[in-house]
Design a protein around this nucleic acid. Structure first.
Length: 108
DNA sequence: CGGTTGACTGTTT
DNA sequence: TAAACAGCCAACC
């Protein structure tokens, strides 16, 4: 058995993000909830921020509750948009994603 | 120990 | 539809 790690919350977050399938997106709050960390949306953002760009974790499939990419450098934002579009996620006017259509439904 | 910060979110203007 | 506000809570200093 492995002793509890102080990073266990982050590990659950990463595992949940990793479960989001290509072509769909999840919100920060949704990831937190699925990871068993209700009301910790900001912690999800913090965890993703620690991730190296080359990580295998699909960080780009996480957007905010408005269906938009959350602020960071303009460059990372363009990369996120490009990678989502490459999987078939459509952007509407003002950089918005239709969550009814592309939002992840846990269990799929 | 206490104030500040922020890859957030729901409600109210 | 969008901007302001208020609530949120772990990490940081």
């Amino acid at each position: 058995m492995r002793p509890p790690s102080p990073d266990s919350a982050y590990e659950r977050i990463y595992a949940t993000v990793d479960a989001v399938p290509p072509g769909s997106v999840a919100t920060y709050g949704q990831i937190a909830l699925e990871a068993g960390l209700p009301r910790r949306a900001r912690l999800v953002g913090r965890a993703l921020r620690e991730l190296p760009g080359a990580s295998a974790i699909p960080w780009f499939r996480v957007v905010n509750a408005s269906g938009r990419i959350s602020a960071r450098g303009a460059q990372a934002m363009r990369e996120q948009r490009r990678r989502l579009q490459a999987e078939g996620v459509r952007f509407e006017a003002r950089g918005r994603i239709d969550l009814e259509r592309f939002g992840w439904i846990p269990g799929d």
